[in-house]
Structures are given as C-alpha cells and as structure tokens.
C-alpha cells in the first residue's frame, strides 16, 4: 500500500509500506531483497529519486551511481578531499 506523504508544485514523495511472508527464514530474506531490488530498479527507470527523506545508508548504496547521473566524481572527489583515509562512516552513501 502507499500514501503520498509530501507534495510540491513539481512532484511528490511516495511512501510505500510492504508486508510479506515466506516459509523459511531464507525465503523471507530473499523476498525482502527481491522486493527492494524490484522497487528501486523501477524507481530508477521512472526517473525518481532513491530517497525522499530516509537517506541512503547501506541499503540503497549500490544504486547511488545511477542516482547521481554521472555526477558521482564530484561526490567522490569531495569525500577524498576531506576524508582521504576514509575514516568517517565507511561504506555508506556508496562512496
């Protein structure tokens, strides 16, 4: 199910809630991963943004390259410039 929780003159945020089950823990985890994959692939195809307000963290990191549309050298350059050793929260934001 979904609600449209934030809206602007140009567009809106879609807030999906999902519930699912599976026989085994393995099934359930797989379903969980598939679900995120399908949803975010669809989002990227439809030119949506990966997140409206929850952020990227680790979960959405692998889509960041697509999200940034070629501008990732700028973000990576900024990270290297101010954190050359990568000690600040490593592995997040896909950088």
């Amino acid at each position: 199910m979904a609600h449209f929780s934030h809206a602007y003159a140009q567009g809106c945020s879609i807030y999906f809630s999902v519930a699912s089950t599976g026989r085994t823990l393995g099934d359930r985890l797989k379903r969980y991963d598939d679900l995120w994959n399908d949803a975010l692939e669809a989002c990227m195809k439809a030119d949506g943004a990966l997140s409206h307000h929850h952020g990227i963290g680790m979960l959405k990191a692998k889509w960041m390259e697509t999200e940034l549309g070629g501008a990732s050298p700028l973000l990576k350059g900024l990270k290297r410039a101010i954190d050359p050793k990568g000690i600040m929260n490593p592995g997040k934001l896909g950088i």
Binding site: L50, H53, L68
Partner: peptide, 22 residues
C-alpha cells in the same frame, strides 16, 4: 560537464535525501 570531461545529468525530482545536494 565536470572538469574531468564527464557528462552528468542530476535527477529531475523536487526533493531528495540522496547525499549532499550536488
């Protein structure tokens, strides 16, 4: 085009929480 010659198109969305606002 960034200084390294790479072409970019940032996302055409009203608001987002996808890292710093490039």
């Amino acid at each position: 085009v960034l200084a390294d010659g790479s072409v970019f198109h940032t996302r055409n969305t009203p608001r987002s929480a996808t890292g710093p606002d490039l």
